[in-house]
Design a protein around this nucleic acid. Structure first.
Lengths: 201, 201
DNA sequence: AAACTATACGAACGGTCGTATTATTAGTTT
DNA sequence: AAACTAATAATACGACCGTTCGTATAGTTT
């Protein structure tokens, strides 16, 4: 339905263009600030035509989350999984995350940190989707840490170390956007290094 | 102008009632989701009457930030400053913060974490105000840590330790709201304890 | 060529937004 | 009691919101 012998059909191209722009907008103005009219204007298409692709605002938001997840996986997760399991992979994951934030893969910094806070205290499908992504991410981090523990390269509770590392990432991301400087990244890098060193055996 | 021999005049009472409600709404739905019409309806007053108190949406938002800052100071900062300077004060500050988040002083969790993310990537007076509060808070944490370092109770770079502690707080706050459980608080408490213990001398 | 489907369009809907203007009420002062 | 002022309300405005509708164009299938 979406592909015709490898070539994308028209509708799917539009959909991709919409979502590519949507994740950028949402990373700055949130999934609520992501309005259909604005999106259509910026892309030079009609509001109704855009709307027809998703059927509702909520569906657009959910599709935007899925699109952001793919970008996040490509930027942060996959490169780390190419490194051998163990402490090297833990380090690589941390480097990738800091780099992902620093390079502004999303112009507003980490997409998920932004919109997770936006929907943290509300109900609904968007909240559930974001809680799911967060859980998934924390479990991945724990797994990566656990591999290093199982190899005897780290002595730590995987969940605890994953919590700490993730906390450093997010604090750095917020500080850098809020103050427009790199101080947070330097502090996070030092904290990550110190934390891993103290857990190394 | 605002007081008549100790008794508040009518207008100031209304203003206080508005802001008390405004901080709660904003902690859940953000400073953008804080709409004048909704606020007026919930308080049973007229939209125009409420509007007249602030003159613009942005002024309402700035006043809401100031009101939240007072509540935050009362809940987190002042109780910690009653404890003697040193590591005990560092511990107390951490306890107060976790308690402040856990008790839901603001129904949506930490007001400032919520709205700081909302305005992190935008310009304007609201952004500046929030960046200022963040800076102020981080400096306070550094000062509290430095007192402990100066007394020889901790061996650490104050800015670095303050960064770490704050990162634990915020990660716990987000996790608890997003998932509706207390796991994050337990993890944060362990991380805080371990971090302080490893820096204790 | 005819029928059908996918995609996009413009126009309009009811609603809510922030804001401005004008009126009404309540409190204080004279 | 009259005059004045501060606080609140009523009403209206234009802009934008998400959504629906009917229609036009293109591409595919029969």
């Amino acid at each position: 339905m979406e592909k015709v012998d490898g070539r994308l059909v028209r509708g799917d191209q539009t959909r991709r263009a919409v979502l590519r722009r949507a994740v950028d907008i949402a990373s700055v103005d949130g999934l609520e600030g992501l309005s259909i009219g604005r999106l259509a204007t910026e892309l030079g298409i009609s509001k109704s035509g855009l709307f027809a692709h998703f059927g509702s605002k909520e569906e657009l938001q959910l599709a935007t989350i899925r699109a952001a997840r793919r970008i996040y996986a490509d930027a942060v997760v996959l490169p780390a999984l190419e490194v051998e399991p163990g402490i090297q992979r833990v380090r690589k994951l941390s480097e990738c995350w800091i780099d992902y934030s620093r390079r502004r893969v999303f112009p507003g910094g980490c997409f998920f940190q932004k919109v997770s806070h936006e929907y943290a205290a509300r109900g609904g499908a968007v909240h559930e989707a974001l809680a799911g992504v967060h859980r998934e991410w924390m479990e991945l981090m724990e797994d990566v840490v656990r591999e290093a523990v199982d190899r005897g390269e780290l002595a730590a509770d995987p969940a605890q170390l994953a919590f700490d590392l993730n906390a450093y990432y997010e604090a750095a991301n917020l500080a850098s956007i809020l103050h427009g400087n790199e101080t947070g990244y330097d502090q996070a890098s030092r904290s990550i290094g110190a934390r891993l060193e103290s857990a190394a055996r």
